[in-house]
Design a protein around this nucleic acid. Structure first.
Lengths: 239, 239
DNA sequence: CTCAAAAGTTAGGACGTACTAACTTATTTC
DNA sequence: GAAATAAGTTAGTACGTCCTAACTTTTGAG
C-alpha cells in the first residue's frame, strides 16, 4: 500500500480532459510511422508553445499514457494508444454522421467534430455509427477505428509521390483546411476517384492529372495532401 | 477610449466557457419566478461550495452577464438572459434530437445533453431541430427557446397542488433524475396524459390519481415534479 | 572535433475554476 | 432589539493549462 508517489496511472478509464485527448491524438498521428513524436512537432500541430508541451508531456507520462525521455521525444504507451484511438473514433464517426445524417458539407465537419469528440459519450458515438450503417471511413477517407481499438494503418503514397504515368485511386485527403477541401471538391478529387499523373514540371512545378476525361493541374503542396492507392496501370479493371 | 478598467462586457458574443453557461442556466431556472437567485441556491443546484459561487458571480457581473449586489443575490442582465436561453435551447434541442433521431430513452437524454450543449455549434443545433421538425418541447415537456431568444414561460401547477377532484394534462416532468423518469414512464405519467386527483391523504400522504381507466398512488415528492395544465373538470371534450 | 543552430527544458507567472476555514452581514426568534 | 442562526463573503490554496524568457542538451556542418 505504499506504492504511489505521484504516478497515478490509475487504470484505463478515467475521463481525460479535452486538452489531454488532443495531445494524444496529435501524438498518435505524428507517430504513425516511427512511433515517436518530437516536442516541437506536437507543439506545432496543436499551435502551442514548445514549453507548454514539455510540461504536459511530463504529466501524461506520469499518468502512464506516454513513454517520455527528456530531450528525446515521446511515444504512446498501450493505454495512451487506446485512448488516442477512442478519440479518433469519436471524431471520425461524428464527422461521418454530420455529413450523412445532418447534411453537412465535407469541409465543415472537421471543426464541429473537433469540439464534439470531447463531449460525446461512447454510447452516442456507437448509436451514430449504427444509424448511418457502421461506416469504415470518415468523409475525407480516414479509417474509423473500431470499438475495440483496431484500425487500418495502411500507409498510402501521396499524389505528389506517384510517378508520372502511374494511376491511383484517391483514398484520403487532408481534413483540416476547409478551403482546400472546397477546392478539391471543385476539382472533384474525392475519395474513390481514379487519377493518373500525366506529367510533373520540375522545381516543384505543377502536376498534371487526368481524372475521367478531365485534365487538371495542381501544385505539389495540394498533391501532398491527397493520398492514393496505386492501381495497376492502364487497365480498365483489375484486382 | 479610457473606458474599460476590468469590466470587459465586450459585446454579446464571446464564447462562454462551460462552467459559465452552467451558472447562467442555473440562475435562469432559479430566477424564473422572482428574477433573482440566491448564492446558496445556485451553489446547491450546481453542487458547488457557496464560496465558489461568490467568486464566479462577481466575475460574471464584471462581464455584464449579471447584476450583483453583495449579500443580496443575483439577477440576469439582458445579455445574461440571452446567453442562458441560448444554452437552454441547445440543451433541449439536443435532448429532443437524441430521443427522436437516435433512439435514446427519455431518462438518458439529459446527461448526454448536459455535455453536448457546451460543444455544439448553433448551426448544428439548428440542423438538429430542422431534421426532427422544429419541436417546441423537449422529451420532458420543457419548452424550447427559439433562435431569437423567446420562450414560453407559462408557470404550471404541480400535481401536488392540484385540488382533489381536479383534472389536468401533464405538460412537463422534472428531467434530471433518470430513476424518477423511468418510474414515471412505468406509471405512464407522460407529457400529454390526462390525470385526475382522486384523493389526497393527510400529512403529506399519498395522492391517488386516475389516468385513463387506471388508478395509482404516488407520494407528494414525486407529484411535485410533475407539472400539469388544469383542465375544465369532468368534460369529455372541450376547448 | 568544435561550435553554432536547432530542439527541448526549467523557472516563474497568469487565468479560470474550484476548495476549506474563518469572518461578516442578514434574518429570525424570543 | 439582542442573540442565535442562516446566508454570504474573503483569504488563502490547489490544479490544469497556457505563456515568455532564459537556460541546457543534442545535432549537424565545417
Amino acid at each position: 500500500m505504499s506504492a504511489a508517489r505521484e504516478e497515478s496511472r490509475l487504470s484505463g478509464r478515467e475521463p481525460l480532459t479535452a486538452p489531454v485527448e488532443d495531445y494524444l491524438k496529435a501524438i498518435y498521428t505524428i507517430g504513425k510511422g516511427t512511433g515517436a513524436a518530437a516536442t516541437n512537432e506536437i507543439a506545432q500541430r496543436l499551435a502551442l508553445a514548445p514549453a507548454s508541451v514539455s510540461g504536459m508531456v511530463r504529466r501524461l507520462a506520469d499518468q502512464g499514457l506516454l513513454a517520455y525521455e527528456r530531450y528525446h521525444g515521446v511515444k504512446l504507451t498501450e493505454s495512451g494508444r487506446r485512448a488516442a484511438l477512442r478519440t479518433l473514433r469519436r471524431h471520425r464517426v461524428i464527422e461521418a454522421y454530420l455529413a450523412e445524417a445532418l447534411g453537412y458539407q465535407w469541409d465543415r465537419v472537421h471543426e464541429e467534430a473537433e469540439r464534439l469528440e470531447h463531449a460525446a459519450s461512447d454510447e452516442l458515438v456507437d448509436r451514430m455509427a449504427a444509424t448511418i450503417g457502421e461506416p469504415e471511413v470518415d468523409p475525407h477517407g480516414a479509417p474509423i477505428p473500431t470499438k475495440d481499438g483496431s484500425v487500418d494503418e495502411t500507409e498510402y503514397k501521396s499524389l505528389a509521390d506517384l510517378p508520372v504515368g502511374a494511376s491511383g485511386v484517391v483514398v484520403r485527403v487532408a481534413d483540416e483546411d476547409p478551403e482546400m477541401l472546397r477546392y478539391l471538391g471543385e476539382l472533384s478529387i474525392l475519395p474513390g476517384k481514379r487519377v493518373t499523373v500525366k506529367s510533373r514540371a520540375p522545381y516543384d512545378g505543377p502536376i498534371t492529372l487526368g481524372a475521367g476525361r478531365q485534365e487538371m493541374s495542381i501544385g505539389p503542396v495540394l498533391a501532398a495532401h491527397v493520398l492514393v492507392a496505386p492501381v495497376a496501370d492502364r487497365a480498365g479493371k483489375r484486382g
